[in-house]
């Protein structure tokens, strides 16, 4: 890979790809879209915070 040419830095050839143009299929049986996976991950996070909060409150 050649070093990037400063003259072309920031030119349209280096335009980053939009995130939503990626393949939508995740290949997973239940969570078929990336949005679904992100929501699932966020849900797991919220569940953990709730459980840890309960632990903190039950054994102060």
């Amino acid at each position: 890979m050649k070093p990037p040419d400063d003259k072309t830095a920031g030119s349209s050839s280096a335009t980053p790809e939009p995130a939503d143009s990626d393949p939508r299929d995740t290949g997973l049986p239940l969570l078929r879209t990336w949005r679904g996976i992100y929501l699932f991950v966020f849900g797991c996070f919220v569940l953990w915070v709730v459980l840890l909060t309960m632990l903190t409150m039950i054994f102060p």
Partner: peptide
């Protein structure tokens, strides 16, 4: 988790 979702959606494709 929040950071990794942002990275997977925005940083990684770039």
């Amino acid at each position: 988790p929040i950071a990794l979702i942002i990275i997977a959606a925005v940083f990684l494709p770039i």
